[in-house]
């Protein structure tokens, strides 16, 4: 089966005042549909750079990135942005919810640029269903400031799922959560992979969580040392 994602000799170099810094040094990786992968490594190993590169938020300095067989480095900003909006859902460590909007509107924000997923379900209903699914039906109409960190992260997961993406990228999703909430969020992400066949790639420092995932990619100084 063709992989959802294929990286070939991908490098990422940042121009810094003291000279160029190579964040990724020739990465060759494949990610398949339905796979749950944890990316681990020390600070500065290139984990987040790899995640944002997979999320089409930054481009490789060299090498090729295929998403569902399409070469992404030849796409223009519109094509990349639309692919990102429809196919990729993000979950961040610091949630990135808009404080002035209630949780339903925060979830609906995901469809602002990507549009509706095309399954015929009205967006508002889908947002409600997703919030119910992450266990927040009792929080409808609440704003992020009224929620706990665990609840905010669950809103962020609901938002990531609104457009029906095939890839979920999570950057330290449990980093700001206590153990119990962290476990709950991890379970949610796992179920997305197991029950819905979504590809989940999670960057984490938590080795215990990483060990629970189906696959672990270990980075050191911008290179894959275990895959």
């Amino acid at each position: 089966m063709d992989p959802l994602i294929r990286l070939q000799e991908v490098r990422k170099t940042y121009a810094m005042p003291g000279g160029d810094v190579q964040a990724l040094k020739g990465i060759d990786l494949e990610f398949h549909e339905g796979e749950f992968t944890s990316i681990v490594g020390t600070s500065g190993s290139g984990k987040s750079t790899l995640l944002y590169l997979l999320g089409l938020l930054t481009e490789p300095s060299d090498g090729v990135y295929w998403f569902r067989g399409r070469q992404t480095d030849v796409m223009d900003d519109l094509e990349r942005s639309r692919l990102r909006g429809r196919e990729i859902g993000f979950v961040f460590q610091s949630f990135h919810l808009v404080p002035q909007l209630d949780i339903e509107r925060n979830v609906l924000l995901a469809a602002r640029y990507a549009g509706a997923p095309g399954n015929g379900v009205p967006l508002e209903r889908r947002a409600t269903e997703l919030l119910e699914r992450v266990g927040l039906s009792h929080r409808f109409g609440h704003r992020p400031v009224e929620l706990s960190n665990g609840e905010m992260q669950r809103v962020a997961i609901a938002r990531a799922l609104l457009t029906g993406p095939s890839l979920i990228l999570a950057d330290e999703p449990t980093g700001n959560l206590d153990e119990e909430n962290g476990a709950h969020v991890f379970e949610l992400l796992t179920s997305l992979s197991n029950d819905e066949g979504k590809t989940v790639i999670m960057v984490t420092h938590d080795m215990q969580l990483a060990e629970k995932s189906r696959r672990v990619v270990r980075l050191r100084n911008g290179e894959v040392i275990e895959s």
């Binding site: 938020l57 900003d77 519109l78 942005s81 639309r82 990102r84 909006g85 990135h96 808009v98 990507a114």
Partner: peptide
């Protein structure tokens, strides 16, 4: 800035 980053992550183009 954070909201701009979020919008880009949600699929906004530079033009948008």
């Amino acid at each position: 800035r954070s909201e701009i980053g979020l919008r880009r992550a949600l699929g906004a183009t530079r033009a948008e």
